[in-house]
Design a binder for these strands. Structure first.
Lengths: 234, 234
DNA sequence: ACCTGAACACCGTTCAAGT
DNA sequence: ACCTGAACACCGTTCAAGT
């Protein structure tokens, strides 16, 4: 509500990068990343598609801005819960950082994909890694080990891992023909064994198993524990 | 050379899925994955774009086929060097499997990206994981641990990790303004420290460091070593 | 300063038609 | 059985033009 003169026509507050980026994030959250087209985004912002080009160079620039917005969200979350960073215990500190990054990624399921095929070297992402690096060094890591550690963590450092088998609606055993199961028993004895054991332990969810959070935790701890051994030896 | 009758016109051997998929792989190898469009691919195959639809449902189907082709390439490589699979030592067996998968991925740098945003549950990929799973179980893993292990490996099981910082041509220190370096020293003390130490140890390649193979190995061993501990405790 | 319309070159895909 | 031409709905983007 910022009327300019006596006219009844509402004066639109002009667009800017901020609003373009935030609009793109909102659009991706609501309708998925593939819905983020110049025309859709413009419509969402109450503007014509070509207007966007006045504020950003091209779509690439928008996606870069979107990544920055997501990383900022992580930073804010971390600042908010600024726990006393018990400097001695790097492990829980790193776990905390990575798990809060993860909560942000879970809010924006499309973000990992965008981050991955962007080489983005924005200041905010560098700052995020500076934070991780700092707690490692303060925790007794050599620079060399810390460097290896970053690579070993990979995208896990940002709170996500690309799952190879998608949570594919219902791959369920319900519509598995018996014939197929028989074939499987022959050609895939180990898979079969695993499925049977899991079906035995948890009779309800036969195949939709795999708790993402649990698995993420397991993998993260595996790496952190491994690093702990290496810290002590150096 | 399969002339049909007396006519001089060469008789084109008809297209089929195989040739479409292989053509797509070749095209991606030569000109990058984004060059794999229906029209480009058709041209490569000496045919009109719409002809492709007679052989495959749509582009999705082509990408699925491409993934299958890549996985097959891994399988062939593994069959070729059918080393005696010293059943007792699961660790070297897994390392071998994963590192040969990696050689295939290095031949097709675009493959990780395609594999990742495809939920593809093809028989060939299942068979690949059956192989990994088998060597784990035979090596003394419980099904539960093996299952966790698969998740922990993630895309590493297929021989790749999505690097977050791209091998970005030359991020080099050459064109870093002194002012920028000064700012960095203030706001990024740890990054700065790491760079300085690395520059000291290896005076030539100041920032283009990071040997991908070394880092992949490091991360893989970290995980495998961690798993080893867990196998012995179960 | 900020926004728009018309146009361009490119996608994937359909459908009726050719041999 | 195998391939094609014309057409459609959608992209990102340019450029000259509007207020």
């Amino acid at each position: 509500m910022t009327p300019k003169s006596g006219s009844g026509t509402r004066v639109r507050t002009p667009l800017n990068k901020e609003r373009v980026f935030n609009g793109a994030v909102a659009l991706a959250d609501e309708r998925g990343i593939e819905a983020v087209t110049m025309r859709n985004l413009a419509e969402e912002l109450g503007v014509e598609a070509m207007s966007l080009y006045y504020h950003v160079a091209n779509k690439e620039a928008i996606l870069d801005g979107v990544v920055v917005a997501v990383i900022r969200e992580i930073a804010e979350e971390l600042d908010g819960a600024a726990t006393s960073e018990d400097a001695s215990n790097w492990k829980t500190a790193i776990r905390h950082r990575i798990l809060t990054a993860r909560t942000v990624m879970l809010r924006h399921p499309w973000a990992p994909g965008v981050i991955e095929d962007r080489t983005s070297m924005s200041p905010e992402i560098i700052l995020y890694f500076e934070g991780l690096l700092g707690t490692m060094i303060d925790g007794g890591f050599s620079y060399d080990l810390a460097h290896h550690a970053m690579h070993a963590l990979g995208s896990r450092a940002l709170g996500f891992t690309q799952e190879l088998f998608a949570p594919d609606s219902e791959t369920a055993s319900d519509d598995m023909a018996e014939e197929m199961l028989a074939q499987m028993a022959e050609q895939l004895p180990y898979m079969m064994g695993m499925m049977l054991e899991i079906a035995h332990d948890e009779p309800d969810s036969t195949l939709g198993w795999c708790d993402d959070d649990t698995e993420f935790d397991f993998g993260l701890d595996l790496i952190l524990d491994g690093l702990e051994h290496l810290v002590h030896d150096s």
